[in-house]
Amino acid sequence: MLPPRDPDKRLKARGTDTRPDGRFEPHQRLRESDGWDIPEDSHLLRTQVTVERPRSIITRNTSPDISFDRSLNPYRGCEHGCIYCYARPTHAYLGLSPGLDFETRITAKPDAAELLARELARPSYRPAPIALGTNTDPYQPVESRLAIMPGILRVLSDWNHPVTLVTRGQTVLRDLDLWAELAAKRMAAVGVSITTLDGGLARTMEPRAPAPATRLRMIRELSSAGVPVRVMVAPVIPVLTEPEIEAILAAAREAGATTASMIPLRLPHEVAPLFRNWLDRHHPGMAAHVMNRVAAMRGGRDNDPRFGHRFRGEGVEADLALQRFRLARRRLGYHKDAATLDCSRFGPPQRAGDQLSLF
């Protein structure tokens, strides 16, 4: 059971209204009335940013479910506040709540570009596309102020290193010239996630993320600049957003997306109770229906973490959604596979006085 909302905190555009303890905490905090009927002063809960200075920046993985083996995340936590975000449980590793802390207590890595250049310069390093935005969005609102991403992209461009991105943040358009420069060398691809075309639903479900119309504009401007764009219909939420699969694909294709992917809703660890609480607050009449359909795709549970199942689900419900997606993708003329990025030109940037290559 989730703790009640803190009445002393005023919330503005937040995905959740509660701060449950992380699953690793030895104790739980509960609010209890002391019997004094004295109102407390309330204040607006604002985002706090903490600086982290790690010793390395590239994270490796061996998961059979994903297509990349390395990633880079300049932030922990995400101010977009998407209630369904599968990354919320990672805040528990910091001793923070996957609830409100995840979207209000952000950790930034301002030295990311310098660390990246150092790791690329190691003699043992072998290039393969680096995935950005695999945990939290590198173009979340705080990026417009901290501007960590331009330095990362300049390092990647200088080293001729391929990169992919997953985002829903419109600040990506600030770096359009850098993405276009990488794309011209066949070294960049961007995925833009669109959950719904319903602006009202998006405001409550993804309170600080750009509106659906803005994300379509992002696709249009990126593709016009020569950047290959993949629309990510994710997550597909039964009852709420599942009816929009075809409409999202059509709108994104018209905007210039060339490839598409789909992932059904995932509710790992603390995300499940947070999502249930959100349903009860915003869609009480649909809550039971939504969760029953989720269970039908997840073996009778809120979540199925097994490799090979977590990104696609199982059963009739999941199979029908996937068939609809594939039929619409083919009908609209999407490419089935994304273009292969070029790793052949990777190498250190030239410095003043270096001898130029003859070829």
Score class of each variant (00 low, 15 high):
Arg208Met: 14
Arg208Ala: 15
Arg208Ile: 14
Ala209Pro: 04
Pro210Glu: 13
Pro210Phe: 14
Ala211Thr: 08
Pro212Gly: 04
Pro212Asn: 08
Ala213Met: 11
Ala213Leu: 12
Thr214Leu: 10
Thr214Gln: 15
Thr214Arg: 15
Leu216Val: 12
Leu216Pro: 05
Arg217Glu: 15
Met218Thr: 08
Met218Phe: 07
Met218Arg: 10
Met218Ala: 14
Arg220Ser: 15
Arg220Lys: 15
Glu221Thr: 12
Glu221Ala: 13
Glu221Asn: 15
Leu222Tyr: 03
Ser223Val: 02
Ser223His: 15
Gly226Val: 13
Val227Gly: 05
Val227Arg: 05
Pro228Gly: 13
Val229Lys: 07
Val229Ile: 14
Val229Ser: 13
Val229Glu: 10
Arg230Cys: 12
Arg230His: 11
Arg230Ala: 14
Val231Gln: 01
Met232Arg: 14
Met232Pro: 03
Met232His: 13
Met232Ser: 15
Val233Trp: 09
Val233Ala: 14
Val233Gly: 08
Val233Lys: 02
Pro235Leu: 09
Pro235Phe: 07
Pro235Ser: 11
Pro235Asn: 08
Val236Gly: 04
Val236Gln: 01
Val236Asp: 02
Val236Arg: 04
Val236Glu: 06
Ile237Cys: 00
Ile237Gln: 00
Ile237Leu: 00
Pro238Gln: 06
Pro238Asp: 08
Pro238Thr: 07
Pro238Ala: 13
Val239Phe: 12
Leu240Ile: 08
Leu240Asp: 10
Thr241Cys: 09
Glu242Ala: 04
Glu242Arg: 00
Glu244Phe: 00
Glu244Ser: 00
Ile245Gln: 00
Ile245Asp: 03
Glu246Asp: 07
Glu246Phe: 01
Ala247Glu: 06
Ala247Met: 05
Ile248Ala: 01
Ile248Met: 02
Leu249Gln: 05
Leu249Asp: 05
Ala250Asp: 03
Ala250Met: 07
Ala251Glu: 04
Ala252Leu: 06
Ala252Lys: 04
Glu254Met: 09
Glu254Tyr: 02
Glu254Pro: 06
Ala255Tyr: 00
Ala255Arg: 02
Gly256Arg: 11
Gly256Ile: 05
Ala257Leu: 03
Ala257Asp: 05
Ala257Ile: 08
Ala257Val: 00
Thr258Cys: 02
Thr259Asp: 04
Thr259Gln: 07
Ala260Thr: 00
Ala260Leu: 01
Ala260Gly: 02
Ser261Lys: 10
Ser261Phe: 04
Ile263Pro: 01
Pro264Asn: 12
Leu265Thr: 00
Leu265Ala: 01
Arg266Thr: 03
Arg266Cys: 04
Leu267Lys: 01
Leu267Trp: 06
Leu267Asp: 05
Leu267Arg: 11
Pro268Asp: 11
Pro268Gln: 15
Pro268Lys: 12
Pro268Phe: 12
His269Ala: 12
Val271Asp: 06
Ala272Pro: 00
Ala272Cys: 08
Ala272Gln: 09
Ala272Phe: 03
Pro273Asp: 07
Pro273Gln: 03
Pro273Lys: 08
Leu274Met: 02
Leu274Ser: 02
Phe275Cys: 07
Phe275Glu: 10
Arg276Gln: 08
Arg276His: 15
Arg276Thr: 03
Arg276Phe: 06
Asn277Val: 02
Trp278His: 03
Trp278Asp: 09
Leu279Trp: 05
Asp280Asn: 14
Asp280Ser: 14
Asp280Pro: 09
Arg281Ser: 13
Arg281Trp: 04
His282Asp: 10
His282Glu: 13
His282Trp: 14
His282Val: 13
His282Ile: 03
His282Pro: 01
His283Arg: 10
His283Trp: 10
His283Asn: 08
Pro284Glu: 12
Pro284Met: 14
Pro284Ser: 13
